[in-house]
Amino acid sequence: MGAVDLDICARVKEDRPLLSVQGVKKLYGSRIGCTDVTFDLFPGEVLGIVGESGSGKSTLLGCLAGHLKPDAGRILYDGRDMGALGEPERRRLSRTEWAFVHQNARDGLRMGVSAGGNVGERLMAVGARNYGTIRDTAADWLGRVEIAADRIDDRPSAFSGGMQQRLQIARNLVTGPRLVFMDEPTGGLDVSVQARLLDLLRGLVRDLGLSVVIVTHDLAVVRLLADRLMVMKSGRVVEQGLTDQVLDDPQHGYTQLLVSSVLQV
């Protein structure tokens, strides 16, 4: 009897969206940043947001991550209204349950601090005070993102672009977040490095059961990573659905243009 009840509880929990976005709108003066954005993100799901430059992707991501304050609409995280949440609570969430991977690794790393310190920062921010444990955890995470253990005391400025990006990912995932925001994580990397990074990301997302919102203009990235896809143009969502469905059978004119613009090698 009890086991059945537990099973139902677990499933009900799974059925509740982790992130629920309802009619979010952000204006820059009289110009539209993004408007009428509504979607649900469930635990373990990867949502891709694609669109050209200036389509409002990054504005939307900024609103979701709490960097920008939306002018209208509601964002519910785990059933809680983010607009009503105080700043201390929001900042606590953003260093425990959330992670933000910047396009430019330099924005997300402390360049003057060693790789180990970068990974350890979030641990220390949530109260870890044992040097040995922090260092072991940092070394473990560097291993997971394929950075050699002997680089743990090197500064990120001595790392290549791809390594910096992998370090940024390790730094973000070390506290076991539930929700990860990624802004063009593969931007500015050459294709072979991109491929390895994507491979790594896909593995981590599967293993850790992360929910991810990933913003990109690269359709190949969403094809590999995303379960669902949202296409944005001029601040509005013009099409959304399962990734393969949207990419293989685009309905909206803009999506058709986007898909046909990809260079075939």
């Binding site: 700043e87 201390p88 900042r91 402390r110 601090v113 060693s114 180990g116 310190g117 350890g120 920062e121 979030r122 220390m124 921010a125 949530v126 109260g127 005070r129 040097y131 922090i134 260092r135 743990i152 005391d153």
Partner: peptide
């Protein structure tokens, strides 16, 4: 204001690492 002092320990961590 928010008692976010983890960064102070990053400095001490760096000391020990180096």
């Amino acid at each position: 204001e928010l008692e976010e002092y983890g960064l102070m320990h990053v400095k001490l961590y760096e000391d020990i690492a180096r």
